[in-house]
Amino acid sequence: MTLLELAADPAAWAALITLIVMEVVLGIDNLVFISILTNKLPEEQRTKARRIGISLALIMRLALLSTLAFLAGLTATVFQLPFSPPVGADGHAPFDLAFSWRDLILIAGGLFLVWKATTEIHHSVDPRPSEDLLDKKAPVAMNFGAAIFQILMIDLVFSVDSILTAVGMTDHLPIMIIAVITAVTVMLVASEPLANFINNNPTVVMLALGFLLMIGAVLIAEGFGVHVPKGYIYGAMAFSALVEGLNMASRNAAKKREGQ
């Protein structure tokens, strides 16, 4: 189907809009990680690091889209453990012990997110002085190269998840490309305000680290074949963000009363 035929097809437009929304939502996880990580850099390097990180995400997504045959290979079983998981009451195993490259990438990325979030949370609650995200007087705990390397690693994980989702929703490559470029553009526009908001609100940093911990656990579960509906995850994140917003409004109201 040509581009003109796609442009005249209402079903193609519906698929494009749906895919853009899905890609933007999936990009939130990537963006939160980039925002938290770049906030550990010197202020003059943060914007550059965020732009490089998001540009790498776009390059990886487009590169994966250009190799659809390679993507098909990512979901093929690479190896299987020599024993079977226990069977549940419904007659099905609760998880899968046959692993594809996609599963291994998701598990590795999930473990990395769990390790990173747990480390930062530990530094934040440790009473001893440390180079953590919440202590604005602490020295910078990361250099530019290390930040870009970690962003590159997590970009790979989220790019594989994002593109496999796109491939599962439509067969038309132009729709996938437009959706991916649009979603990454939204990430680029939103990165600066989100990073500044996280940096200026220490309690939001802890909430974001909690999100990353949960996302890491979900990626590991997905790698073992346990499907966790994304709606539950983002619903929990939205509810937590709403509660934190109410807490922030309450603190601001208390400050105003004290000022009067």
Score class of each variant (00 low, 15 high):
100 S>F: 13
115 W>M: 10
252 N>M: 09
203 T>D: 05
175 I>F: 00
152 L>C: 07
177 I>R: 05
48 K>F: 15
140 V>P: 04
200 N>M: 07
175 I>Y: 00
59 I>S: 13
246 L>V: 10
250 S>D: 02
32 V>T: 03
105 I>A: 13
106 L>Y: 01
14 A>Q: 11
127 P>V: 09
149 F>L: 08
242 L>A: 15
249 A>F: 06
226 V>Q: 00
79 F>P: 00
256 K>Y: 02
24 V>T: 10
198 I>A: 04
113 L>T: 06
33 F>R: 05
184 V>S: 04
123 H>E: 03
167 V>K: 01
32 V>N: 08
256 K>N: 05
68 L>M: 15
3 L>S: 10
85 P>R: 05
10 P>W: 04
20 I>L: 10
158 F>K: 02
140 V>Q: 08
7 A>P: 07
141 A>P: 13
224 F>D: 02
212 L>W: 06
30 N>I: 00
8 A>F: 13
95 F>P: 09
28 I>E: 14
99 F>L: 11
221 A>V: 10
203 T>C: 03
149 F>I: 10
50 R>G: 04
258 E>K: 06
82 P>M: 05
69 A>V: 12
67 T>K: 13
168 G>P: 04
124 S>I: 02
238 A>W: 09
211 F>Y: 11
141 A>C: 11
218 V>T: 09
169 M>K: 12
232 Y>W: 15
1 M>I: 04
211 F>C: 14
88 G>M: 01
29 D>K: 07
144 F>A: 09
22 M>E: 15
158 F>G: 02
85 P>V: 02
155 D>P: 03
212 L>S: 12
180 V>G: 06
230 K>R: 15
227 H>I: 11
165 T>R: 00
220 I>N: 00
139 P>C: 05
170 T>A: 01
51 R>L: 13
172 H>K: 06
193 P>L: 03
175 I>L: 01
201 N>E: 08
31 L>Q: 12
165 T>F: 02
